[in-house]
Simulated scan of single mutants.
Amino acid sequence: MNNRKQHRTSLKDLAKELNVSIATVSRALRSSSEIGHEMQEKVKALAKLRNYRPNPFAQSLRKEAPKIIGVVLPNLVTHYYAAVLDGIEDEAKRSGYSVISANSHESFDIETQAIDNFINLHVEGIIACLSQSTTDYSHFEEIAEMGIPLVFFGRTCLKERFSCVTANGDQAAQMATQHLIDTGSRRIAFIGGPNHLDMVQRRKHGYLEALRENQIPIERELVKCGSIDYDAVLSNTVTLLKEQKPDAIVAFNDIITFAAFNAIREAGLRIPDDVALIGFTDDVHAAFVTPQMSAIVDQAHQMGATACQLLLKNIAGDTGVYHKIVPQKLVIRGTSAKKPQ
Rank of each mutant, 00 (worst) to 15 (best):
I35F: 06
E91K: 13
M39I: 15
I126C: 04
V77A: 12
D86N: 12
V99P: 00
E91Q: 11
E124M: 04
A83N: 12
I126L: 12
I127P: 01
L61P: 01
V123T: 06
Q113C: 07
D109R: 07
S31N: 15
E64G: 13
N120E: 14
D116I: 09
D116F: 03
H105M: 10
H122C: 07
N51F: 08
S107V: 07
I35D: 08
E89L: 02
S31L: 11
E64Q: 15
V77F: 10
S95G: 04
K42I: 12
Y81H: 15
K48G: 14
A58E: 04
L29R: 03
G96Y: 04
I127V: 12
V84I: 13
Y137H: 12
G125I: 02
N103K: 01
S138G: 10
K48D: 11
K42P: 04
S107M: 08
A45I: 08
R94K: 14
G87V: 09
E141F: 03
S133W: 02
L121N: 10
E89P: 00
G96F: 06
R50P: 01
C129W: 01
S133L: 11
E111F: 00
E124Y: 00
L73S: 05
I88R: 02
K93Y: 09
A45H: 09
S33F: 10
S98C: 10
I127D: 05
N103T: 03
S138A: 14
D109A: 12
S26A: 15
D116G: 06
L61E: 03
N55G: 02
Y52Q: 07
R53T: 14
F118S: 10
I119Y: 05
E41F: 06
G36L: 11
N75C: 05
H139M: 12
S60C: 11
S33R: 14
P56W: 03
E91A: 13
K44Y: 05
L121P: 02
I88T: 04
S107L: 08
D90F: 02
P74I: 08
L121E: 06
G96E: 09
N120F: 00
P54W: 06
C129H: 02
D86F: 11
H37C: 08
I100Q: 00
A114P: 00
E34Y: 09
V72G: 01
R53G: 03
K67R: 15
S26K: 07
H105E: 15
I115D: 00
A83Y: 03
K67P: 04
I119T: 08
F140Y: 15
N51T: 09
K63A: 15
N51S: 10
V72C: 12
R27W: 05
K67L: 13
F118R: 01
D136K: 05
S101P: 01
E106V: 08
G87H: 00
L61C: 10
V72H: 03
S60T: 13
I127C: 03
S98R: 03
Q113V: 12
N51Q: 13
D116Q: 11
L46G: 06
S138N: 13
R94H: 09
M39Y: 09
S101K: 02
V72L: 11
G87Y: 04
F57S: 14
A28W: 03
G70T: 02
Q40W: 06
Q40N: 09
M39V: 15
